[in-house]
Design a binder for these strands. Structure first.
Length: 500
RNA sequence: GAGGGUGUAGCUCAGCUGGUAGAGCAACGGCCUUUUAAGCCGUGGGUCCAGGGUUCGAUUCCCUGCACCCUCACCA
């Protein structure tokens, strides 16, 4: 027999014994009076009144000693010790206790006391089995000495932790904490924006034509309409349509899907917050971003700085602003702003950079930037005023020809956000799309598609608008000190498991 | 996509130069009513990732495949 099956069989046998004792191994509900943490907070060892509580949780440690035992149960708030003694529970109750396994969910009712060694503990007067666990969780022993917590043989196998996140969460409280923080980060962003009058909206994830970013899409097929559909790679073009419609400030927090490589910064589906506001430009948006991110950091972590992978990141505004070409000049000593493709190619060769195919000027510039500048952008920094070739949806710079009013925020060498004064000139937008069509014809699979409906909307008229996209996963990585995006996505994309 | 690494019990890991595998925890049985990595005595548990090859013999050496991890590339 499969050894795991043997462990499961033992537990099923116990389950059957429990049923024969009249115990329902899968109860319908249990009324709690306290969480584990609340018991610890409420108990006054020297208080005159006794404290009787009902708590529920998963059995995570067990020390059996004949007719009395100690155990810990864990709920979302933490863990608390429970003392099971036959003379209190009765023989029938203790018989049920004997059939419990680590991992079972139980409810316990009883008086709180303090043990000889000083640990606040519930003396179980009643025990209710809430859910029998049939498969051994990698529950681990812990030793707590003062503030020192030692975990023995922690459940650490990354593959299993990602594939079976439920087990990871059940066993590793720090993982739960990360996802609580993620929720608070999103919640704080939402609160920040709602407090300033922005309207949260939902736009299509299934789109007849994708756009708003450079990426290959996931494609699917609508049977009833017998037509291809694409999962969105960005929200941008739909949100801008809403400004045509008269909304003056909208945002959307949603999944985007990009059919590309995966690494520690990329998951094929990821969460983006996009924001568009009328009558504003990218300068306004810079202020908004630095203020919002600082505010989120402050409200979620209680400080405006965070330690990320050993580096202290300081989010207090203002963030440094460096124009794109200036940033390259500082790193390479070269001013690329006037360079044509051969000159850029020569510079790239000098830097030992290579690009496959026959890239355009934008691609060369981007490559030079991302190799020479980006890794050095550790503290929050805005790179501003990008070359127009890189930004077909951004408005031309008001004073510098060849540039657009665009900025990207970088933190810890990673792109955090992308924003611009939105292009609202429909004739210019059409020309930019046509340039993209040219790149596409030349083999650039990620070049943008011309979107006639979007152009129609722009022709009706879109007010001057500032737009923003922030990577929610990346922001979460920064604020939770996560080294990889997989640590901030509950169920990250994985190759299929070998059939078990 | 390239290079490197890893894959052994439910979990964490040993296993030197080839001779069909060990530990701790978990599990099972026994003793134990204030323990806390509880303790003591005993027991069971393995397709050594998969498939080929070399060999008398492969967990070990070679090849191929798969998964995961790291670095680089791609993904601006």
């Amino acid at each position: 027999m499969d050894p795991l099956d043997e462990l499961r069989r033992q537990r099923i046998e116990k389950l059957e014994k429990l049923e024969s004792l009249g115990v329902n191994p899968y109860a319908h509900a249990f009324d709690r009076t306290h969480s584990a943490a609340e018991v610890l907070g409420a108990f006054e060892p020297d208080g005159a009144a006794s404290l009787t509580v009902a708590v529920a949780g998963r059995l995570v440690s067990l020390r059996r000693m004949g007719k009395a035992s100690f155990a810990h149960i864990a709920d979302a708030s933490g863990r608390i010790q429970v003392y099971f003694a036959q003379d209190r529970l009765g023989e029938a109750g203790y018989a049920v206790f004997r059939l419990l396994d680590l991992g079972d969910f139980i409810g316990v009712k009883g008086e709180v006391f303090r043990t000889r060694t000083g640990e606040t503990t519930i003396q179980a007067a009643e025990l209710t089995l809430l859910s029998k666990s049939l498969r051994p969780l990698p529950i681990v022993k812990e030793k707590i000495e003062g503030d020192e917590k030692t975990v023995y043989d922690a459940f650490a196998d990354k593959e299993t932790r990602y594939r079976q996140r439920y087990a990871d969460l059940a066993v590793n409280p720090d993982v739960r904490r990360t996802f609580v923080l993620r929720s608070r980060i999103v919640s704080e962003m939402r609160r920040y924006l709602e407090g300033r009058g922005y309207l949260e909206v939902e736009t299509p994830a299934l789109q007849p034509q994708y756009g708003g970013a450079f990426a290959r899409p996931f494609t699917t097929h609508h049977h009833a309409l017998d037509m291809p559909l694409y999962l969105r790679i960005a929200d941008e073009l739909y949100l801008k349509r809403l400004l045509v419609g008269g909304f003056e400030g909208v945002f959307e927090i949603a999944k985007d899907f990009r059919n590309e490589g995966m690494d520690r910064d990329h998951n094929p589906e990821f969460t983006m917050m996009e924001l568009y506001v009328a009558y504003r430009d990218y300068g306004f948006m810079q202020s908004l971003v630095e203020d919002m991110v600082h505010s989120v950091c402050l409200n979620v972590l209680g400080a405006g700085t965070v330690s990320h992978q050993g580096t202290e990141l300081r989010f207090e505004p203002p963030w440094e602003r460096i124009p794109f070409f200036e940033a390259i000049r500082r790193r390479t000593g070269e001013d690329c702003s006037g360079m044509d493709i051969p000159a850029l190619k020569a510079l790239a060769a000098g830097l030992r950079l290579q690009i496959e195919g026959s890239p355009g000027r934008g691609k060369w510039l981007d490559e030079i930037f991302s190799q020479t500048v980006q890794p050095h952008l550790v503290q929050p920094t805005f790179i501003t005023d990008y070359p127009i070739e890189l930004s077909p949806l951004a408005k031309k710079h008001r004073s510098s020809p060849g540039l657009v009013e665009r900025f990207e925020g970088f933190v810890a060498g990673r792109e955090l956000c992308n924003a611009f004064s939105e292009l609202n000139d429909p004739l210019d937008q059409r020309r930019r799309f046509q340039e993209q069509a040219g790149l596409r014809a030349a083999g650039d699979e990620e070049a943008m598609l011309l979107d006639e409906d979007f152009l129609r909307a722009l022709e009706y008229g879109m007010p001057p608008t500032a737009g923003l996209g922030i990577g929610v996963d990346r922001l979460t990585m920064l604020l939770t000190d996560a080294p990889t995006i997989r640590d901030v996505i509950l169920f990250p994309a994985m190759r299929p498991e070998r059939s078990a």
